[in-house]
């Protein structure tokens, strides 16, 4: 009963955080200097009336909120305007109706754009995360078990090295190496492949994914190795491990039944945090391999002050981070009953 209440409390807090993000999102982008109706357009052919028309089309001719015409530059307006006719109200109302709006820049529904990009990002970063977690954990276990041997030292040095590699640099090296070996340089599929049988389509996507996933895996596995190693070494120094050894259990049994579960805790934290950022994507990797993911969409939208896309994307990221944290909290209490959900 207590547990359920504590859980509900956590969920309520998460919901509150999301609400806060929704409000923050709206004002955050409107404080930025720049005018969406002119962003990215430098052309003497664009007449003043045309800019005005763009503003009307985007709904930017309406006051931001009561008392404020605009936030950058701050322009105080009438407080007596109908609140239903302000940008803020229209934004929140549409949001609660499940409407993310139409992108200023591409004239497409934001939901469509985000769905397309989110799927690409999850595909890439998901594969990279899973690979780097598996490889990192295995390396970490080896290093901890063989602590202070040459195996351990090489694992630590290698991990530190790959962890500190500049992502874009590694990506470019792999890009050059891969393209000389016939791997594609850009995009996530070969144009025209959509008419092929499904299995060939997947092979095609896998070919495009290979280099970015490899980059991601190399960069992140070092972090996981180090965390796994240090956490496992802590656990291995506990008395009950000594007892287990004294009982004559095999190495494998000690690791599997006694050490690993306890050593996973810090890793879960990092994985949860990284999962949250999965959605934002690895912007550098996406940029080098021209992977059409969410990170690139955000950068582009920011450059064009495409508020609906920015608001949608930030909301998506916030929800994912909050959800991942909630999940981490719950996993804790499962992995370590000493951690209470309260």
């Amino acid at each position: 009963m207590n547990r359920t209440r504590a859980l509900l409390k956590k969920i309520a807090w998460s919901a509150f955080t999301v609400l806060f993000v929704i409000i923050l999102n709206f004002f955050l982008f409107r404080i930025l200097p720049g005018d969406p109706a002119r962003a990215g357009i430098r052309d003497p052919r664009l007449k003043k009336e045309a800019v005005e028309m763009l503003r009307v089309r985007f709904g930017l001719d309406k006051p931001v909120i009561n008392c404020f015409e605009s936030l950058n530059p701050i322009k105080v307006g009438s407080c007596a305007v109908n609140p239903l006719d302000t940008q803020f109200f229209i934004y929140t109302r549409n949001l609660f109706q499940g409407e993310l709006g139409i992108s200023y820049h591409t004239n497409r529904p934001v939901a469509d754009i985000l769905a397309e990009r989110l799927w690409n990002t999850v595909l890439l970063i998901g594969a990279g995360q899973i690979l780097s977690i598996i490889i990192g954990v295995v390396f970490g276990i080896f290093a901890a078990w063989k602590a202070r041997t040459s195996v351990d030292y090489s694992a630590v040095i290698a991990s530190l090295l790959v962890w500190s590699l500049p992502t874009f640099w590694l990506a470019i090296l792999l890009l050059f190496w891969g393209s000389n070996n016939g791997l594609p340089l850009a995009g996530k599929s070969t144009p025209g492949s959509s008419s092929l049988p499904l299995i060939q389509q997947w092979v095609d996507i896998a070919r495009h994914m290979l280099l970015p996933t490899l980059t991601y895996t190399i960069v992140y596995m070092g972090e996981y190795t180090l965390i796994m190693r240090s956490s496992l070494m802590d656990v291995l120094s506990e008395d009950y491990i000594l007892t287990a050894k004294a009982k004559g259990l095999s190495t494998f049994q000690i690791l599997k039944d006694h050490a690993l579960k306890n050593a996973m805790l810090p890793l879960v934290t990092v994985i949860a945090i990284n999962l949250g950022f999965t959605v934002a994507g690895a912007i550098q990797i996406e940029a080098v391999f021209s992977w059409p993911g969410l990170g690139g969409a955000i950068v582009e939208a920011l450059g064009r002050r495409d508020f609906p896309v920015l608001q949608g994307a930030f909301l998506l990221i916030a929800v994912t981070v909050i959800f991942a944290n909630l999940l981490a909290d719950l996993t804790y209490s499962y992995l370590d009953p000493r951690v209470k959900v309260d």
Binding site: N180, L185, A186, G187, P191, A287, S290, G296
Partner: peptide, 22 residues
């Protein structure tokens, strides 16, 4: 028969693409 315009977000990759014949 066809023309395909491929988007590159990275100009080095663009240069590499014509060098390798992609």
């Amino acid at each position: 028969a066809e023309v395909i315009f491929q988007t590159f977000e990275n100009q080095d990759a663009l240069v590499q693409a014509i060098k390798t014949g992609q």
